[in-house]
Design a protein around this nucleic acid. Structure first.
Lengths: 198, 198, 198, 198
DNA sequence: CATGAATGAGATTTCATTCAT
DNA sequence: CATGAATGAAATCTCATTCAT
């Protein structure tokens, strides 16, 4: 919530990178949006790449820390999953520029940075895989392939940050409920227990 | 499957754009990968933008045409959905460079091109929305919000093209089956008809 | 003597670097002098540093090769020294931009390049040290410290490239003769055999 | 020997300019080495150029004043020359950063400053030329071209500041003796009076 | 005096595009 | 069709200098 020059630049950078992509964004444009001269950005960051890295690192750190906190107090795997999805979606809608960038610009990271972020990303995904595994253990979920399911879940939910707008007709809570419902019961899960009818 | 210069350039362009993004790719690099000199690209395409547009247009055209063909002969909405998902995933894994680019580089299109592609994309999504609506009509699906569900479905499936590798441990058929199952019945749909227990 | 664009750029670069130093020279200025656009330089060289390196490497290579050829056919150490000095001075006056740069801009080389050139420079100096050592052996020279003497000789002669101008009043041959004389007999060597009278 | 902020900055500036050249040095680097922040330098100097000028002016002033004092009490031209060389070398080794800069960065001076320093430099060189002329008059030296010889002498001796290190194996006194000897008698002057045998 | 954020001009470098051969 | 030298606009980055605190 602090509004230092540095934080303004970061905020505008996330927005710009989301809009035009990292490579498609220019520091001139960023400077203009942040209300500073081009050179001033280099007082706070040593390179364009560093700006991207700061956004990605802080976003991933927050994601991992907060989701762990959110699911700690839930008792059942289902409850943990619901809390996890809820948090994921809320964070991906409130800080949607940053999360979009963190999701879409992995490829723009230089090798060393890439490695760091991939580690954090795996850690985050692991949290969800663990929940699913627990659900299977406790027989409240039935999943053929945990990895696939976790990926599907996160991609589905992350995708929200691609189109969500606060001024859109669906509220965040509506979206959260729909997605949880969808992921837990599918399109037909509440209607009939039919097998896989090819 | 023709291997003209032009088709090689297109293939390499899709690969390169996927790897580094449209803005992050240079025509020099493309030329090198395609085995020609920089200037030669301009005998086949009038600009970098045109290369992107050709990829996107042909990809979207194929997507729309083929999915329609695939679902035509399916009788029930469930069957249509299964066929649709199957086709979507297969196409997104076999031509994953092109489909990835078509999905991720919308923002790199110039306004006129952007409009054209968005229309095609909506048409494609509409096909899936129609299936879901039909499913509700015929009471074989239960969906709160068709738009959200269609988006979730496509993002989930498209996401496969982000990580799928032919050398990975999951075959395309395995992936298709898992995703169809997941989307139709969710994690718990086959276990119990419990309500939404917050 | 070839006048390709590349050779023109190199020639002008040597001249500019000599005039303003490597760091003090801009590629814009170089481009202007070479009659090309700024960007064109990068068609021939990958960086400003590479231009400097090409100048230094080719200069040092020529120096070592040619001086070896020059002294090969001289029989006595004195004759070899005279030939060596003569060649050194001639090369440092005819290609004085390049030799000046090779001498003065060692510090502007990046570490890897620096190492390469230092090796070549040592090789060149060694040639002169060898001549002096041979002179001592054959008792036609009397030198307390070969390293110091070789350094003094080369610095004295290299210095010519700092002030020599083809339009000046001293011809190259005059300069060569004076320097050889000076270095062989000193200011007083022909007058009296006085000891070191402090 | 005073260690005011200003004198520290000057000392570090001479060192930095020697290492990277005037153009290649940045005030930020200088500030860091001097242990202050970038802006602080401007409390002591009005510009980067002024720092260079202060170094050069004080160095040249000291050179001229001290060499005159050193040679005043010597009686013969030979004695004067020995004293002059001795002083020159000692000063160029003890204050070798400053003297190196004074020697190498003439071209970095703005026109007005350039003129001033060139005058001082000529004055310094003239002192040595005068000694040589006196030596010829008194027939204790034999020199074809006084200007060339003076230039050769100074370049030879100044060059010491390019490689001298207090931790090297040659002491200053050793170097002084070798150079004096070398310049007075050459490599062969003490051996035989042979003519110029081409 | 000292700081350090900010400036803005300018440096190096990149790259889509053109065109003579 | 193909080449590769050249362009020129624009991108990233640097740095001497200023100034409010």
């Amino acid at each position: 919530m602090t509004s230092t020059r540095k934080s303004i630049i970061l905020k505008e950078a996330a927005h710009l990178f989301r809009e035009k992509g990292y490579s498609g964004s220019t520091l001139r444009e960023l400077a203009k949006r942040a209300g500073v001269q081009g050179g001033s950005i280099y007082h706070h960051f040593s390179s364009k790449q560093e700006i991207l890295m700061v956004i990605m690192e802080s976003t991933m750190t927050t994601l991992v820390e907060k989701v762990q906190h959110e699911i700690t107090f839930a008792k059942t795997p289902l409850e943990k999953l619901r809390k996890g999805i809820q948090f994921h979606i809320k964070y991906h809608t409130t800080d949607r520029d940053e999360t979009y960038v963190a999701d879409a610009e992995l490829r723009s990271l230089e090798p060393a940075n890439y490695k760091k972020i991939v580690v954090m990303r795996r850690k985050y995904e692991q949290i969800f895989r663990d929940i699913l595994a627990m659900g299977i253990d406790q027989k409240c979920m039935e999943i053929e392939n945990i990895s696939l399911a976790a990926r599907a879940l996160l991609q589905m939910c992350t995708g929200i940050s691609y189109w969500y707008s606060p001024s859109g007709k669906d509220s965040i809570d509506t979206i959260v409920d729909s997605y949880v419902e969808l992921f837990l019961y599918g399109l037909c899960g509440k209607i009939h227990h039919g097998g896989n009818q090819k």
